[in-house]
Amino acid sequence: MNNLEIYDANAKLEAIHQDIKRLVERSNKEYLDLMLTNLKKDILNSISAYVTDDIEKGLKRSMVDSCRMRETCKERFTEFLENNAELIKQETVSKKIIGDKRAELEDIRKSAPFDKCNICFSEVDSLFDKQINLISSLQIYDNNKKDKTDISSIPEEIMVKSVLEPVSNKQRLQILKSMASETKTFTALSELTGLRGGNLLFHIQKLLENDLILQRHERGDYMITEKGYNLLIMLTNFKKYLEI
Rank of each mutant, 00 (worst) to 15 (best):
Q171L: 09
T225E: 00
S152E: 03
G194I: 12
S162D: 13
L208S: 03
R196E: 15
G197N: 10
T149A: 05
G228R: 07
T149W: 04
V160S: 05
L189S: 06
K148Q: 01
V167Y: 00
L164K: 13
D221R: 01
I233K: 10
T185G: 13
L208I: 01
F186G: 02
T187K: 15
E165A: 08
L231A: 06
M223E: 14
I213A: 00
E157T: 09
D221C: 06
G197F: 09
A188F: 07
I154R: 00
N144C: 01
M179A: 09
I154A: 00
Q171E: 14
L214Y: 11
F202N: 13
G198N: 14
S152H: 03
L195C: 06
K148P: 00
V160R: 12
K145L: 03
I175Y: 03
K161Q: 08
S190M: 12
T149S: 05
M159C: 11
I175Q: 06
H217E: 04
T193H: 09
G220F: 13
F186N: 10
T183N: 15
L189A: 07
P155A: 06
K148W: 01
T193I: 01
A188T: 05
Q171Y: 11
K148S: 02
Y229F: 09
V163E: 13
I224Y: 00
I224E: 00
N210T: 14
S168D: 12
E156A: 11
T193P: 05
E226P: 05
L200Y: 08
R172Y: 07
P166V: 14
L232A: 05
N210V: 06
Q174T: 09
L195S: 06
Y222N: 07
I213V: 01
E218F: 13
G220T: 08
N144P: 00
D221P: 03
L173N: 13
G220D: 06
S181Q: 10
M159E: 10
A180H: 12
L189G: 10
L212I: 04
R172K: 13
N199W: 14
M159Q: 08
I154K: 01
L231I: 11
I154C: 00
V163T: 14
M179E: 06
I154D: 00
N199C: 04
V167H: 00
L192Y: 05
E191Y: 13
E156W: 09
N210A: 02
L214E: 14
E209P: 04
I204Y: 07
F202D: 10
G220W: 12
Q171S: 12
I154W: 00
L207Y: 04
